[in-house]
Simulated scan of single mutants.
Amino acid sequence: MKVLFCGDIVGRSGRESVTRNIPRLRQELGLDFVVVNGENAAAGFGITAKICAELHGAGVDCITTGNHVWDQRDIIPYIAQDKRLLRPINFPPGTPGWGASQYETARGQKVVVVNVMCRLFMDPLDDPFRTVDAEIAKYTLGRSAHFILIDVHGEATSEKQSMGHHLDGRVSAVLGTHSHIPTADSWVLPGGTAYQTDVGMCGDYDSVIGMKKEGAVLRFIKKVPGDRLAPAEGEGTMCAALVETDDKSGLAKAVRPIRIGGRLPPAG
C-alpha cells in the first residue's frame, strides 16, 4: 500500500497547497489513502465543516487534529457525525467525536487511523501509550487491518520517539505533528514501523510556525499583549510523508518526506 500523510495545515496557504497537489499526487504516486492533520486549517485555529468538505473533495480520506480541534465551536456537532474527522483518542470519555476509525480503500484494503496527543508540555490527558495499546489491540496488522497509522500530536521529541519505539512492529507508521517544523529523521524502525518525529506543516514557511512573523516575534521581545496572530499568506509548502508497506504484513518497506512548493527545498 501507499499512504500519504500531510502535516498540520495552517490557514488558506496551507489548504491551497494541499488541495492543489493531492489530486495530482494520487495519480502520479498511485496513492491508496491520504490523511492530513487539519487542526489549524481555519485561519490558523481549528477547522470547519466547510473546510472538511473542501479537503475531502480534493481527495483527502481522513482528517486528524490535536489541541486546537475545538477552536471553531461549530465543529462540535459536526465531528460527532463524521468519522472521517478525528480528535485525539485520549481525550476524556464523553468527548464528542472519535479518536480512531477504520476505513476502506477503493481496492478493499482496511486502513486504521489513530489520532493521539502527547502530554509533555501539553494538556494533562489520559495516558497516550495505554490508550493506543488498547485501540490497536482490536486489530491484527496484515489481516484485519492492512495499514495502521498513528498521528502522534506532541511537543516533546522524546515522547514522540518513545511512542515510535513502543509501537514498532505493531503498526505501519508513527508520524508526528504539532511542531510545524519537518524533522530529518524519516526511517523504518527495526521492527518495520515507518517513523518521523514531525512531518512539518502545510503552510507559508516565511513565518513563525505558519503565523505572520512580525506579530509572533514581538511576543518574544515585548511583554505587551499584541494583536491576535494571523496565518502568513505567502505561497505554502506542502510537507508530507509517503509510506509504502508490504501488502501481506502491513509493515513498512519505505518512508520518505514529500515537500512541494513554497520556500523549503523540494523533496520526494
Rank of each mutant, 00 (worst) to 15 (best):
residue 181 I to M: 15
residue 65 T to P: 07
residue 89 I to T: 12
residue 96 P to A: 06
residue 90 N to I: 08
residue 102 Q to P: 02
residue 103 Y to G: 01
residue 157 T to S: 15
residue 115 N to R: 14
residue 158 S to C: 12
residue 128 P to C: 13
residue 131 T to I: 06
residue 67 N to Y: 09
residue 144 S to C: 03
residue 145 A to Y: 03
residue 176 G to D: 08
residue 185 D to R: 08
residue 161 Q to R: 13
residue 116 V to L: 14
residue 140 T to D: 00
residue 154 G to S: 09
residue 74 D to R: 11
residue 159 E to V: 09
residue 193 T to V: 00
residue 150 I to G: 03
residue 187 W to K: 11
residue 174 V to Q: 02
residue 107 R to C: 09
residue 88 P to E: 07
residue 102 Q to D: 04
residue 182 P to Y: 11
residue 71 D to A: 13
residue 110 K to D: 00
residue 127 D to T: 10
residue 66 G to E: 10
residue 179 S to A: 14
residue 186 S to W: 04
residue 140 T to S: 13
residue 124 P to H: 10
residue 71 D to P: 03
residue 170 R to L: 10
residue 186 S to N: 03
residue 88 P to T: 07
residue 195 Y to T: 02
residue 178 H to C: 03
residue 80 A to F: 03
residue 101 S to C: 09
residue 135 E to L: 12
residue 177 T to P: 07
residue 175 L to M: 06
residue 164 G to W: 09
residue 181 I to S: 01
residue 179 S to W: 09
residue 147 F to D: 02
residue 102 Q to V: 03
residue 126 D to L: 14
residue 136 I to H: 01
residue 132 V to H: 07
residue 88 P to D: 04
residue 187 W to M: 10
residue 170 R to N: 02
residue 88 P to F: 14
residue 114 V to C: 10
residue 112 V to Q: 02
residue 122 M to Q: 11
residue 135 E to Q: 14
residue 68 H to D: 05
residue 161 Q to H: 12
residue 110 K to A: 13
residue 97 G to H: 05
residue 165 H to T: 12
residue 98 W to P: 01
residue 184 A to W: 11
residue 90 N to M: 12
residue 134 A to G: 15
residue 113 V to F: 00
residue 118 C to Y: 08
residue 102 Q to R: 08
residue 123 D to C: 06
residue 176 G to C: 11
residue 152 V to M: 15
residue 114 V to Y: 04
residue 112 V to A: 02
residue 123 D to K: 13
residue 71 D to F: 14
residue 127 D to I: 00
residue 93 P to C: 00
residue 186 S to D: 08
residue 91 F to P: 01
residue 84 R to G: 05
residue 119 R to Y: 05
residue 129 F to K: 11
residue 160 K to N: 07
residue 113 V to C: 02
residue 151 D to F: 14
residue 92 P to E: 05
residue 107 R to H: 08
residue 145 A to E: 01
residue 147 F to N: 03
residue 66 G to Y: 12
residue 88 P to I: 09
residue 191 G to N: 02
residue 190 P to E: 07
residue 123 D to E: 11
residue 118 C to L: 13
residue 133 D to H: 10
residue 147 F to T: 01
residue 177 T to F: 14
residue 136 I to Y: 05
residue 187 W to I: 00
residue 100 A to E: 13
residue 125 L to I: 07
residue 77 P to N: 08
residue 74 D to C: 01
residue 129 F to Q: 06
residue 188 V to D: 03
residue 186 S to R: 04
residue 191 G to D: 02
residue 97 G to T: 05
residue 67 N to C: 05
residue 82 D to E: 15
residue 72 Q to I: 01
residue 142 G to E: 08
residue 144 S to M: 02
residue 163 M to N: 04
residue 102 Q to S: 04
residue 155 E to W: 14
residue 71 D to M: 10
residue 101 S to E: 11
residue 72 Q to R: 14
residue 141 L to S: 02
residue 130 R to W: 13
residue 113 V to S: 04
residue 104 E to C: 00
residue 73 R to I: 08
residue 126 D to S: 15
residue 155 E to Y: 15
residue 185 D to Q: 04
residue 74 D to Q: 11
residue 74 D to N: 12
residue 105 T to A: 07
residue 75 I to H: 00
residue 75 I to Q: 03
residue 73 R to L: 10
residue 91 F to V: 04
residue 76 I to Y: 06
residue 79 I to V: 15
residue 188 V to R: 07
residue 152 V to H: 13
residue 167 L to D: 02
residue 109 Q to L: 09
residue 109 Q to T: 06
residue 188 V to K: 06
residue 138 K to M: 04
residue 145 A to P: 00
residue 99 G to D: 08
residue 160 K to S: 05
